[in-house]
Amino acid sequence: MHRVAVIAVEGVAGFDLVVPSQVFGTAHSMDRPPGALLGAPLYEVMVCGDGPGLAVTAAGGTELFRIAPAHGLADIADADTVVLPGMPVSDAVPDVLLASVRAAYERGARLVAVCNGAFVLAQTGLLDGRRATCHWTDIDAFAQRFPQVEAVPDVLYVQDGRLVTTAGAATGLDVCLHLIRQDFGSAVADEVARHFVATPQRDAAQAQLVAHKEPRDDGESLEPTMQWLRRHLGDPVTLADIAKHAGVSARTLNRRFRDQTGTTPMQWRLRLRVHRAQTLLETTALPVEEIARHCGFGTSIALRQHFARLVGMPPLAYRRAFQVRQG
C-alpha cells in the first residue's frame, strides 16, 4: 500500500492538512468483491507531527483547534509521499523536519508542498535549480527569498520530477487527484472526484486567478457550449464552430473562455478528449485506433502524440498500467 505522510507542525493550515488526508484516504481499488461498495484502500495516510497539542489555524493564523498527531516525524521514513501543508513562514523550521524531508526524498519518496509549504521545501535545498510555485500572495516573496529556485507564477501546480508544489488550499485537491491519477489511473481519480463533488481534472497550467466576471446577461455563460462540446468530442469541431454555437465571434469566445476557465477553447477540448481516452483505455478493450476516432483525434498517431505529451506515457503503456479488470 502507498504510504502518505501529511506533516503537522505548530500553526499548520487546517484546510491544507485535512484535504490530502481525506482525498488520499478516499481512494479505493476499482476491483470490488461481489456485493462490496468499495474495493481495498490504496493509500495509508499518516498525520505526522512533533508532539501533542499542535495548533491548527485558519487564514490569518487564527487558531481553530489543537491536535495530537497519531504519528511522529520519524514515521516520515516509511512514507512514499510526504505532504507539507501550508504553515507559518519562518526561518525557524525544526532541523529534524528538514532532515526528515531530505532523507525521504533521497530514499525515493515524492514530496508535495501545498500553498506556502513550498517555503519549507525550498529550505531543504531540494528545489534549487527546479521549478516551483506557491500561493499568489506569496510568490514574489518566495522568488526573492529563494532566487536559486525558478518561481512559476500564475499556475495551479508544478510537478518537477518527484517534487510537487501547489498554488493554494483548493489546489491541494487538484494535485491530489492528479497524483492519484498518476499512481492508479483515471478511473480511481474520477471516483474520488465524484465522492467530493469536484472537477475531475483541472489543467496544472490554468491561471491561479481566473477573472470570473459577472455576466452582463444570461447568455454570457459558456456552460451550454461546454456541454455541447462534451457531447461532440468525437466530431470534427473548429474554433469557428464553437463560436457559432456560442453566438459570438471567435475573439469574444477566446476572451470569455479565458475569463471562465483560464484556458482556450481548443486546449480545454483537447484535455477533455485525452481524459475520455484515458477512461476508455482503462475500462474497455477497444483498439487504440477506435478510441482515437471516438475521442475526435482522427488517427491513432494524433492520439499517441497528444496523449504522451499530456499524460507522460503512450496509450498502450497506460492501458497496461491502469486497465480495470472486468468481472
Rank of each mutant, 00 (worst) to 15 (best):
V4K: 08
V6S: 05
A8W: 04
V9A: 01
G11N: 02
V12W: 12
F15H: 09
V19I: 15
V23L: 04
F24C: 00
G25L: 05
T26F: 09
S29Q: 04
D31K: 06
G35T: 07
L37T: 13
L37R: 09
L42D: 08
V45Q: 04
G49D: 12
G49M: 11
L54V: 07
A55D: 07
V56I: 15
A59P: 09
A59Q: 15
G61T: 07
T62L: 14
E63L: 07
L64W: 10
I67M: 10
P69W: 02
A70P: 06
H71A: 12
A74Y: 06
D75E: 15
I76L: 15
D78R: 13
D80Q: 10
D80G: 01
V83S: 00
S90H: 02
S90M: 06
A92Q: 13
V93F: 01
V93A: 09
V93D: 11
L97C: 11
L98T: 13
A99W: 06
E106H: 05
L111Y: 14
V114W: 03
C115A: 08
N116V: 15
A132Q: 00
H135W: 02
W136G: 02
D138A: 13
D140I: 10
V149Y: 06
E150S: 12
E150F: 11
Q159Y: 04
R162K: 11
L163K: 05
V164I: 10
V164F: 03
T165N: 07
D174V: 04
D174G: 03
V175M: 02
V175E: 01
L177M: 05
L177R: 05
D183K: 06
A189I: 04
D190V: 08
V197A: 10
V197R: 00
A198T: 03
A207K: 08
A207F: 02
L209M: 14
E214W: 09
E214Y: 10
D218L: 11
S221L: 05
P224G: 04
W228D: 05
L229K: 05
H232S: 06
D235Q: 14
T238K: 06
D241N: 11
K244E: 15
H245M: 13
H245F: 14
G247E: 10
S249Q: 08
S249P: 06
A250Q: 13
R251A: 15
N254E: 15
N254Q: 14
R255Y: 04
R256T: 15
F257E: 05
R258T: 10
D259S: 12
Q260V: 01
G262C: 12
T264D: 12
M266T: 13
R269E: 12
R276Y: 06
L281T: 13
E282W: 07
T284C: 08
E290I: 12
E290A: 14
C295L: 05
G296P: 00
F297L: 10
I301C: 11
Q305M: 12
R309P: 03
L310K: 11
L310I: 09
P314W: 09
A317D: 15
Y318W: 00
Y318G: 07
R319H: 08
R320H: 07
R320Q: 07
R325V: 13
R325E: 13
